[in-house]
Design a protein around this nucleic acid. Sequence first.
DNA 1: GTCTATAAGTGGATAGAC
DNA 2: GTCTATCCACTTATAGAC
Lengths: 221, 221
Amino acid sequence: MSEVKGKGTKERIRDVAIDLISEKGYNAVSIREIARQVDIAESSIYNHYKGKENIMDSIIEYLKEESKNILNEISINTFDPKILVKDASNFMVKILEATNIKKILRIVCIELYQNEKCLDFFKNQYVEPSYMFWTEIFKKMIENGRIMKKYDPGMLAREFYNYNLFLIFKLYLLDYNEATYDSLIKELTNDFSSHVQFFFEMISMQGKKKNSRSFFKKTPK
Amino acid sequence: MSEVKGKGTKERIRDVAIDLISEKGYNAVSIREIARQVDIAESSIYNHYKGKENIMDSIIEYLKEESKNILNEISINTFDPKILVKDASNFMVKILEATNIKKILRIVCIELYQNEKCLDFFKNQYVEPSYMFWTEIFKKMIENGRIMKKYDPGMLAREFYNYNLFLIFKLYLLDYNEATYDSLIKELTNDFSSHVQFFFEMISMQGKKKNSRSFFKKTPK
DNA sequence: GTCTATAAGTGGATAGAC
DNA sequence: GTCTATCCACTTATAGAC
């Protein structure tokens, strides 16, 4: 009947759940409240989901699919730091700005402490791959002689990326406000850019004179 | 009667609440459960606290007092980076290891998203003073000619300290496990030390040769 | 697939005896 | 200050009619 709206009831339930849980947390949201907002009977929800936890699971599954899609759109296959950092930054912003995803990332952050699937996603689908990505980058840079050999690329990856991870927590736990989300993203992006600038300037200066921009020039080769 | 145990009922209620809430979160803990574990009737709790939220408030008040006490025990009044970093690190470990405080800090982190008092404590009593402290330090270092003038001390403070803030979130949200807490603290301390080493080495190398340890020598004056 | 009705339990909180 | 008894709103979930 009302499927003309473009979305089936199942999707509407999920979307309302995302709205409510991202605002108030999993425990504070009831099936009743979701049903009311979707404008169906409580019991109808059980025709689409086994129960409350199952709705939550489907939200995380949806996040995994969506972030995979975004990941596929972007290909990073350069070792030119200038392009690289810009690409990585764009990728981050693209994820954070995606309408469907931003609220789910808020849910992931606020449910980390009690939901294993949120914890797993954050650690294994987000943090770990990021560390590995940047480790690879720094490894290549050391091989190219851009960074002193004595540094461990994994350590550099953490030094570089933990700053960003803090910004994520700051965004979703300390500053989060749905109404001002867009300007928060802008702040975050500027903050991250400043960090990138500082960090690469720092590691590029080693053993050199004052040529602080060397990292942002084209690869000599 | 049973106050011979050393603690009054009011304190026992608070301590049980800390145990339970730090494990399961505020919403998942009921007055009923607290009463059962304290071994008193539910209604007796209302002789000591106005209600559930009031227990939570008293926990945060307790945290504020305790951290003030720890703060008073430690005095940092040097600008010798070697001593300074060690003192600051000791201070952090002391806070994180304090039996009464560690579980409350877990509560603060997991309730940031819905409890204004937790958010206020974290932002205004913890993050902000830390930024200010390190900003002051870097300002002094710039004045002493240890760091290039072009850097903003506030920016340096964030670059330095956000790493630590991420470690705090990692401890309480990503890795938290009451049983292995002590070894987690050890990991965190090592990680932080490595960061301190790296960061001060980085900023000390600017415009200098390879004298990477210059920051950890005594003040020439 | 949607509804009404209802089960069966849990939540915070209060009244009043002792 | 502690207890028993109770209130009632709210919770997830199911049964069965349409």
